[in-house]
C-alpha cells in the first residue's frame, strides 16, 4: 500500500509541475528585455535615481531654492545658484541652479527632496543601476540628472499623450 501512496504523492507533485509548464512566463526578462530599463518593471511610485524636470517650454523647473538640500537627511545635495539674464535664460524664475549635484554614495532614496520641492522640479525616476567600483562616478551632476530636452513641440505633444 505504501507504494500506491508514494506514487500518488509523486503524481500530485508532478501535476503542479506540469500544470505550471503550460502557463505564460511570469519572470522579468532583466537584463535582456527591451527598453531603457532592460526588462525591469517598476511600480509607479518606485524611488530610483532622480530626474530634474523641465517645463513645457524646455526651461528647467529648478529655481535653486535649496529646499531639497535643506530637507535632505543625508546631506547629499549640493547646489550653487546663479541669476538668469535676458540673454541666457535657464529657468522660468529669476534664479537657476548653476550646479546641482547629488551624491549617490550618500542618498538614501527617502523622497524628502521630492516632497520639499515647491516647483516639482526634482522627481524620483526609476533608474536603479547605481552600483559602481568607483565612488566618484556616483556623484551625479545636473547634466546627468536633467530630463532630456524636448526636440520639437510636435514631439513634446506626442510624448505627453
Amino acid at each position: 500500500m505504501s507504494i500506491v501512496r508514494d506514487l500518488a504523492a509523486v503524481a500530485k507533485g508532478m501535476s503542479v509541475t506540469f500544470g505550471e509548464i503550460f502557463q505564460p512566463t511570469e519572470v522579468e526578462n532583466y537584463p535582456d528585455g527591451p527598453g531603457p530599463f532592460r526588462g525591469a518593471k517598476f511600480e509607479e511610485r518606485y524611488r530610483g535615481r532622480h530626474v530634474l524636470q523641465r517645463d513645457e517650454n524646455g526651461l528647467e523647473k529648478c529655481v535653486a531654492c535649496f529646499l531639497c538640500a535643506a530637507a535632505c537627511p543625508s546631506n547629499c545635495i549640493h547646489i550653487e545658484a546663479a541669476e538668469n539674464t535676458a540673454e541666457q535664460r535657464i529657468s522660468s524664475a529669476e534664479r537657476y541652479a548653476k550646479v546641482y549635484n547629488i551624491d549617490y554614495n550618500r542618498c538614501i532614496f527617502c523622497g524628502y527632496c521630492v516632497e520639499a520641492c515647491p516647483t516639482d522640479a526634482i522627481t524620483h525616476g526609476h533608474g536603479f543601476e547605481l552600483s559602481s567600483l568607483n565612488t566618484t562616478s556616483l556623484v551625479m551632476r545636473k547634466e546627468d540628472l536633467l530630463a532630456p530636452m524636448p526636440d520639437s513641440p510636435a514631439k513634446l505633444e506626442s510624448s505627453t499623450q
Binding site: C65, F66, A69, A81, A82
Partner: peptide, 9 residues
C-alpha cells in the same frame, strides 16, 4: 547677495 544663496546655507 541677490539670488546667490539662502540664509540657512
Amino acid at each position: 547677495y541677490r539670488y546667490k544663496t539662502r540664509p540657512w546655507e
